[in-house]
Design a binder for these strands. Structure first.
Lengths: 126, 126
DNA sequence: ATTATAATTGAATTTATATTCAACTGTCAA
DNA sequence: TTGACAGTTGAATATAAATTCAATTATAAT
């Protein structure tokens, strides 16, 4: 147990060994920020609804707007957001842009998160 | 193609069939919001760093503060956040509270997200 | 050409979230 | 029983993200 040198945290490092070990094993900051950004793309109910919808069928912006009962503008902003994170892709067809899921990772992550939530619910009940 | 009845979206539903189909297949709102909340718990670099750290070893609040170079208060707030979402758990040991990951889903989701990011990076380069 | 519709965009606004700050609780040791 | 430290808490502040609004682009139909 040694006093921490840094100016910010007002505490001792109690378990020097573990901390040293963990520091060595942890991913670099850039990767961790990148991962957080990936989750940010999924961390909004509008975007989750869009993903759930596109998992069932490809759709244009108007379809999604009608489905979620939101303006085209709001939907379009979120679609750009999802596209940037490469979770969905769009192809132009006349006046419309038809969106669909980008790849299978999205589906996989979705499945696991649902499992986690089911178990968390079960636990909380008894 | 019919004019959408709802007052909010300023558009037609172009692909009636798909929209009807998707509406039937989609998860209920409550579940989707719940899933988004799960991702919200992961959608912050501080929390991701905490999870990455706890994946390597259990740690107390001071350890994590020293490791991430942040105040105990900020860390504690985020720990409560993660605990509420059942991603981590804490046990008391004297004056300290030792935190660790709650279960394996967290690890699984983490793995898949890293895969996705790797492939997204690869795509964007070539 | 002109009009109508699908979609996007940027700025403004609103809303949500993270961090700080100060005060507090619980536990240990002198 | 007092002091020191680990940790938590709530309110205030700072920061980030979602939605709205108004304007714009692109395509298709008249």
């Amino acid at each position: 147990m040694t006093k921490c040198k840094c100016a910010i945290c007002d505490c001792n490092t109690i378990h020097d060994e573990q901390v040293k070990l963990v520091k060595k094993k942890m991913l670099d900051d850039e990767s961790l920020i990148c991962i957080a950004d990936f989750y940010k793309a999924l961390a909004d109910s509008t975007r989750i609804k869009i993903i759930n919808a596109l998992d069932k069928s490809e759709l244009c912006v108007c379809d999604i707007s009608a489905l979620l009962n939101m303006t085209k503008s709001a939907i379009s902003h979120q679609l750009q957001n999802l596209k940037e994170m490469r979770l969905i892709k769009g192809r132009k067809s006349g006046k419309e842009v038809i969106y669909s899921l980008a790849d299978d990772h999205v589906r996989q992550v979705f499945e696991i998160s649902m499992q986690h939530i089911k178990e968390a619910k079960r636990e909380s009940k008894g």
